[in-house]
Design a protein around this nucleic acid. Structure first.
Length: 440
RNA sequence: GCGAGGAUGGCCCAGUGGUACGGCGGCAGCCUGCUAAGCUGUUUCUCUAUGAGAGCGGGGGUUCGAAUCCCCCUCCUCGCGCCA
């Protein structure tokens, strides 16, 4: 949620931010209309309450002195019925006002490129040495603004779907039989690889001052809705039928909501938390995309980075979180590029977002494996997470970034590290965790 | 699931119908020659703001007036039961 006072004082920056994102100005216009009405009715209600309180006190004193307060009581009853009527109007206005307020997007960071469509994301840097099949060279160079380092390969690697089948690593058909499309049985050494990735990432972030947590995998509507926005409910979330519970789509949400309504001491910040959880996603907006194998599935494990910090430090943390994932991928020998997401593709919460996209040599393109967001005070304001300062309580800033999303990275490893004999080489750093050097 | 006890400001805690007591911590100031103590004020949210309203787990009710009485719900603690 945005800062209402800032919106009233300086509406232009909010109009600008919305326009750059491709949002209309209707939400803001409508907010101002409702806000004005709300404040007017609030004043009426407060004035009546004041009158009621005073009369009630008079009644108290009259009764104490042994007199009759019937006249006053009757007067208060009249006022109360008026208050009740106005309170109903106030509640309706308040709900409408809140609803439209939640649709107004966060202020953009000045560095975000104003454009629509992910083809307009801004290239930031490349890292690694990509194995690029001849036919993909042009795509690779275009995607890295000619800055990508690569080795040409003569044969396109097998798709991960073929690898999974050949090495007996995934059973999709039987998963479809019992659960539908985009579900899977993970088998044998691929399962070990998944556990190794999780353990590796836990150690990696522990060494970088993160507290590691496994959060609740289900959340109630209220905290979840404050940790995210309406689009996530439409596209991602599974709801449980008999309870006020949703399966989490990322541990970002329970971790963010963990400190809901709390006031932190200045010395407690920054708070670095790495969350380990399964992530459940309906993929409602992805019909027909990536339908084969385990690239885009309804659940996977993710080790997520999350930071609560003071406002003046959040842009440094945004770079730190991004670098963490880059270091992690580099340690796994995975080539990647970083792009800054353009204004039209950001969520309402994001002030700025980097995607980290690994090179997938079988697909011949960069695909997202991590997403690094600075939500500034937007998420913290909705969740009411503050810290104490000499000048009063202020909202913290919150940031999140993927560490490892297991299925994506496993596909990436299957595409990047195919051996001559048709196996999959395990990145050196992972071998202590898998206990084997190759999937054969 | 059953029984009992709980939920009050950042934290602790008092409060059985008259508008939230006290302590701790934080912040600001005063005083004091000394790693300290004392004193005063302050401490949540909202509003067109020298003023006012709201707020005692959530929602509803009774009442001129509810932290307090009644109903429903949530969560926590303890005991019993069940259980991977």
């Amino acid at each position: 949620m945005i800062d209402v006072k800032l919106l009233r004082d300086n509406p232009q920056q909010y109009y600008d931010s919305a326009r750059k994102r491709g949002f209309g100005k209707e939400e803001i216009d409508r907010f101002f209309m409702l806000d004005e009405q709300w404040r007017a009715v609030l004043k009426e209600v407060n004035d009546s309450r004041k009158e009621r309180n005073n009369l009630s006190l008079q009644a108290s004193e009259t009764i104490k002195k042994g007199g009759s307060a019937e006249q006053i009581k009757e007067k208060v009853r009249e006022i109360n019925s008026r208050i009740a009527e106005r309170e109903t109007a106030l509640k309706t206005l308040e709900a409408d006002r809140e609803a439209v307020l939640s649709l107004i997007p966060n202020l953009l960071h000045e560095s975000v490129v104003v454009a629509k469509g992910d083809e307009n994301d801004q290239f930031i840097r490349f890292d690694g040495n990509a194995r690029v099949f001849r036919d993909d060279k042009e795509e690779f160079l275009r995607s890295t603004e000619n800055k990508g380092i690569f080795s040409l390969i003569e044969k396109r690697p097998d798709s991960h779907v073929d690898v999974e089948e050949r090495l007996d690593l995934v059973d999709l058909e039987r998963a479809a039989k019992i659960s539908g499309a985009r579900f899977y049985f993970l088998k044998n050494r691929l399962l070990k690889l998944e556990l190794a990735l999780i353990n590796y990432a836990i150690d990696f972030f522990s060494q970088r001052a993160f507290t590691t947590v496994s959060p609740p995998f289900m959340m109630n509507y209220d905290p979840l809705s404050k940790a995210t926005d309406i689009e996530t409910f439409k596209e991602s979330l599974y709801k449980l039928e008999n309870d006020d519970l949703y399966l989490i789509s990322t541990s970002e949400h329970p971790i963010a909501a963990m400190l809901k309504d709390e006031i932190l001491e200045e010395g407690e910040l920054p708070l670095r938390v790495a969350g380990i959880s399964p992530c459940f996603r309906r993929e409602a907006g992805a019909h027909g995309k990536d339908t084969k194998g385990i690239f885009r599935v309804h659940h996977f494990y993710k080790v997520e980075q999350f930071v609560f910090c003071k406002p003046e430090h959040s842009w440094d943390f945004h770079e730190e979180l991004t670098r963490n994932t880059e270091d992690l991928l580099r340690s796994l020998e995975i080539p990647f590029r970083v792009v800054s997401i353009c204004s039209g593709e950001l969520s309402r919460l994001n002030a700025k977002k980097y995607d980290i996209e690994a090179w997938f040599p079988a697909q011949g393109k960069f695909r997202e494996v991590a997403s690094s967001s600075n939500n500034t005070d937007f998420q913290a304001r909705s969740l009411n997470i503050r810290y104490r300062t000499r000048e009063g309580n202020r909202f913290v800033h919150t940031l999140n970034n993927t560490g490892i999303a297991t299925t994506r990275i496993m596909v990436c490893i299957m595409e990047n590290f195919q051996t001559e004999s048709g196996g999959i080489r395990i990145p050196k750093a992972l071998i202590p965790y898998t206990g084997f050097e190759e999937i054969t």
